[in-house]
Design a protein around this nucleic acid. Structure first.
Lengths: 203, 203
DNA sequence: GCAGATAACTTAACGGTGTTAATCCACAAG
DNA sequence: CTTGTGGATTAACACCGTTAAGTTATCTGC
């Protein structure tokens, strides 16, 4: 209650406060395990107040995802721009992608892993989303490697998608099958990426 | 009620009947959207009866996973045994894995894509499970390729897992993002597998 | 200064959920 | 005929997401 009483906040402030609390709780306990009531108690308002700012619980998550994936796109962009060598840029981009997914497993799950339930289809369109933007950065990286002759003359679209499949595969396995006796994380991630790069390289 | 009245079933029969109904419903509507009450109504018993045969809802899920893993392992075993060349065997095994996933998208989703609810983590032991058996077939294929000098002297465990990541990645992407503008299915699948094999081959 | 509108928030409630405790009931053994 | 037992049920608890209605405070126009 202290928050509500002491701060003289605007509507946008409360909205952001809800988002912040939701992110913290979802990350800590998982989307399914956080109730609207629990979230409401955390921010010191009644549960129904949340519905004045967000359509429903999935909407809350979608907003968080867009925030988060905007950060991903930004991170990838900054990493890619840091490396002149397109191959290094692409490899580091791939590693950053996986690292990102593991750092935000619940967000990653909602956008990339969870098959679209009919409802979410209407609310969340991959087209034009930050997730799609992130993929376009990957595609640009592949294009760079091919045009500079680092990669064989492979089909750019198919290769981008194959690369995505690889890094998505390792990311989602590590997230979804936490009980599986994987080898050391970083070693597995690098092995996936290195193997695919080795298979694409010019010889 | 007809079922209960007409058939003179044993305890094991009802257990299997619950499993069958659960698989059908989970596949059709998703784990989260199937309630114990709905499942109970389907089989013509009261909700609490299910708890006489399964510890809780996650436990039900785990049992279903075992069934699916068993079927996949059987499919892979039969395919691998058909090819003498270890590389052909492994490649055909990988393609069969993806084909299995795409042919039974709901089963695949249930077992591989949908993360087990946190609770199930404690209950499910990978050691000795059908999942371990299926993966061991893949590992054996990799071992064959390495010992016969077809693959470079890579780490067998890490490579098996990396290969799994690749084929799981393409399978789950194709299932979960049906709206994404993928290149032709078979071309993408082969591109993923071929690229990884190319990266592992002796040169 | 006061009536009315409006925005922000809460209370109460609905219909659902997984799960447990207590109970009922048919049938076999003594 | 009594007793016990295994299988199924009823009732209940403590939650859940969400909605409708109600409250309260602040601002606006006269």
């Amino acid at each position: 209650m202290a928050t509500k009483a002491t701060t003289n906040q605007t509507k946008a402030d409360l909205r952001q406060q809800i988002l912040d609390a939701a992110r913290e709780l979802f990350v800590a306990e998982g989307y399914e395990n956080v109730s609207m009531r629990k979230l409401a108690e955390r921010i010191g308002y009644s549960p129904t107040t949340i519905y004045l700012y967000f359509k429903d619980k999935p909407d809350l998550m979608v907003q968080l995802c867009e925030e988060t994936f905007a950060k991903l796109a930004q991170t990838l962009e900054s990493i890619v721009s840091k490396h002149a060598d397109p191959m290094v840029a692409l490899r580091e981009g791939c590693r950053a992608y996986v690292r990102f997914g593991l750092k935000h497993p619940h967000h990653y799950q909602l956008v990339f892993i969870t098959p679209l339930p009919p409802k979410a289809d209407e609310q969340y369109a991959f087209e034009g989303s930050m997730g799609e933007k992130a993929f376009s950065i990957l595609r640009r990286g592949v294009t760079g490697c091919v045009t500079q002759g680092k990669f064989r003359d492979v089909d750019i679209e198919a290769t981008s998608q194959a690369l995505w499949a690889g890094i998505h595969g390792v990311t989602s396995l590590l997230i979804a099958h936490r009980d599986f006796p994987f080898v050391a994380r970083d070693r597995l991630i690098d092995h996936v990426i290195d193997t695919m790069f080795e298979g694409l390289k010019t010889r």
